[in-house]
């Protein structure tokens, strides 16, 4: 589904990603773990098309399409979704309005009809309940006055509504209490199917107690220094990132 080859990325002349190779097949959950500043967020941003990053080498191919040629909205319509680490507040833009516009755009692109207001509301209501969002909160502007946890839940609600092929979760687990973490993990697990994939970026091993990845990658200083099964996460939990950093230096 997603093929990243030798991806090298700069921000203001500074090299952040130094040759990332990563393949995510349909139906898989991958976790990318790494210390702060290792380039985890940059990786998700570049896949989603956030401006401000210079791709100096490499390619990002999604289902045969060169993603780097597409604008962020085109990528989203092709089936990519980024759950933000720090979701922005959109004053005056209602959640319903954002999601209806987004879903209409995505459905039209898929060759489906737009949902009627009634169909949309029904779906919206179901998903709000499923995620455990406060329905009153959803009447507000997007993320405005939301707590950190509420913002993360809202991101998952959007993910669930738009039902993309590939979900990029940028530290969605950080700052969550245990109940929210469980609930969000359930949503991620509910996604699992033969044609949907998830790339989960995290600093901590904690969420991997609830979401079982098919593959774990360790990103240190812009390079994936090790890939393996879920046991790699436990190894990290025990020894930290330091051993990988040392390994990286030795290499």
């Amino acid at each position: 589904m997603l093929d990243i080859r030798d991806l090298q990325v700069e921000v203001s002349g500074e090299r952040i990603l130094k040759g990332v190779n990563l393949t995510v097949n349909a139906g898989e959950i991958h976790a990318v773990m790494g210390p702060n500043g290792s380039g985890k967020s940059t990786l998700t941003h570049v896949i989603a098309g956030k401006p401000g990053y210079d791709v100096v080498q490499g390619e990002v191919v999604f289902e045969g399409i060169d993603l780097l040629e597409l604008s962020p909205d085109q990528r989203a319509r092709e089936g990519i979704f980024l759950a933000f680490q720090y979701p922005v507040e959109l004053p005056g833009v209602r959640n319903r309005q954002l999601l209806k516009s987004a879903l209409d755009a995505v459905r039209l692109h898929r060759g489906q009809e737009e949902l009627s207001a009634r169909e949309f509301d029904k779906l919206f209501k179901t998903k709000v309940k499923e995620i455990g969002m406060d329905a009153e909160l959803m009447k507000r502007s997007v993320n405005e006055g939301f707590s950190g946890g509420e913002k993360k839940r809202s991101e998952i609600l959007q993910l669930s509504m738009l039902d993309p092929k590939l979900a990029l979760l940028d530290e969605t687990d950080s700052g969550l209490d245990i109940d929210a973490l469980k609930s969000i993990s359930e949503s991620i697990n509910r996604r699992v199917s033969s044609d949907r994939s998830t790339l989960l970026v995290t600093h901590y091993q904690r969420i991997l107690n609830y979401v079982q990845p098919d593959c774990v990658h360790v990103l240190v200083d812009g390079i994936i220094v090790e890939s393996g099964g879920r046991e790699l996460a436990s190894e990290l939990e025990a020894s930290g990132y330091k051993s990988f950093k040392d390994k990286d230096i030795q290499e």
Partner: peptide
Amino acid sequence: ELMFYMMSRGIDE
């Protein structure tokens, strides 16, 4: 930032 957020949901510019 706001523009990118919305566009990352599939909404055109």
